[in-house]
Design a protein around this nucleic acid. Sequence first.
DNA 1: CTGTTAGCGCCTTCAG
DNA 2: CTGAAGGCGCTAACAG
Lengths: 332, 332
Amino acid sequence: MKPRSATIHDVARVAGVSTASVSRVVSGDRPVQDETAARVRAAIEQLGYKANLVARSLKTRATNTIGIVAPILASDFFMLLAESMDRELTANGYSLIVCSSTESEVEEAKRLTLLSDRLVDGIVMIPTSDHCPHVGAIQARGIPVVFIDRLALDVDADAVLVDNEGGAREATEALIADGFRRIGFLGADPDVLTARERYAGYRAAMEGAGLAVEDRFTSFGKLDHIESGYRAMESMLAQPGAPEAWFIVNADNQIGATNYLMTAGRAHRGRVVFASFDEMPYSPLLQFCRYSVSQPIAEMGGLAARILLDRINRGGAGKAEIARLKTTLIRH
Amino acid sequence: MKPRSATIHDVARVAGVSTASVSRVVSGDRPVQDETAARVRAAIEQLGYKANLVARSLKTRATNTIGIVAPILASDFFMLLAESMDRELTANGYSLIVCSSTESEVEEAKRLTLLSDRLVDGIVMIPTSDHCPHVGAIQARGIPVVFIDRLALDVDADAVLVDNEGGAREATEALIADGFRRIGFLGADPDVLTARERYAGYRAAMEGAGLAVEDRFTSFGKLDHIESGYRAMESMLAQPGAPEAWFIVNADNQIGATNYLMTAGRAHRGRVVFASFDEMPYSPLLQFCRYSVSQPIAEMGGLAARILLDRINRGGAGKAEIARLKTTLIRH
DNA sequence: CTGTTAGCGCCTTCAG
DNA sequence: CTGAAGGCGCTAACAG
């Protein structure tokens, strides 16, 4: 059942050379005479030899493995990210280990140490909150970390973010240009910098147009929960004099809010308009959403992967770099 | 930059014991005297010792790692699967390596050999097509493989599927009960067993009610492409006498079809009704879709993980088992 | 260009 | 219950 496969020794014996020569042929590092190389290759073929990557890793101290940890795997944002990272990493001989922090700082810490125990060569993470005290220990172990989508304030590391403030401002301004004077904000999660930046962009647009931000119509809640968007929309629309136009912080909250309007809140339909962060394949199909702010998710993943590989190759040197990518406003 | 961390030798020296004792304390396998154990633990604490998992794997021939390969990572189905597998695997000390086969049999073969070269302890896969000749080689290397969602015909392996035929039949019957006499089928991908089974269920419902299956209104296309659903809907509705009711093979095709009706095909709105496989968070928000067939995706992932771990623990013995989970019909 | 020789860090008999 | 010793499969000096 467990066929112990051929080793480099077997190949060396069959080819009548030393293990070092076999290793050289396999890795292609150093020059080997054509004829011996041919003998080695023949032996490899004959025995069906495959290098044992675990043994190699033990020796080289590199696993060619990258870890990624995110609050939730089952989100549109994460899966597009995973896809683009997979593409970039596979092309460079790396594999991707995924972990969910299940939105818990404790679990997040566990996953990070698990990954570093596995000796991954680098880590990409979407932090659960603004504070990641445990990341320092990972970096101290010599494993580079790149943040994506969100930033931890207490850590010095590379990051790939988007211009959250600019994107939110642009979308809010579009609503204003359409004639809306009163606009609410849905999903101002105070624990996540990304949400705070989007809120700041919304405020900037409102104030720039001389419009009032009504605290009654700013809802707080969890960023990654559909349920949260549903509840927020429900309670805000229950208030007298609720606005018609809303800026929504992300796709999950938009799904929740839309869901409310399609079911229990259907009485409010017909006079509600959204602008929302995140453009997804199904975005054009949702009602109410006039504008969405599209993030270049694939670029973000590719860039994060490249930054990480770069840092790995440079041995971790160089100071942290924060990339801000532009968003695109889409009108439906 | 690369702080070579403490090894089992360092711990042994500090604690004044042998490396064997340290190993025993760490693994908890064999009994160790309380006092020496305490000294070892103190030394571990002091040095911040972490076992090198790569070295352990080399010795034990187990990496505590599971690979998963799917045609596309960026799909709701895959991500829900990954999430549930991650949950089950993490609880058992395993990590998940993800790979995309990018819907290509050639790439699929590459990913499989990559995973087996990495000495993963098991593999879960959604095959790209019905034929996976390369899987046999993986199994021959002693690595168990579990199929999920789709089956490869030429391989003997465990599989976790749903009752595709029953689910499709039930949904089609619901449309019939609503009074529709003519129902089209969207997305009969001939290369994938899962799609063929859904088509068979649709046919069974139609024939059971004495209704005609009109080949003109059965569309073929790729299962995982939104674009495919769009094109199919477009060309079918362009034909004279197109039916009002449609069964759609999965979520991606439904998004595509809906998209067509929201844009270029808006003239056809108002007299089109769908029943579709797959229930997603945004499903209740899509128009036209009256019924959806919900798959127990989380259960599928958890079950696949458990079957795999089971087989790993049993050393691969036992004959292949195919699980068929029930679907649930949802009315919107 | 090629072979010999040490380990990488850990587990695991086998003696004591 | 504990220590000594060998080896998992590979790479990287170092000699030749």
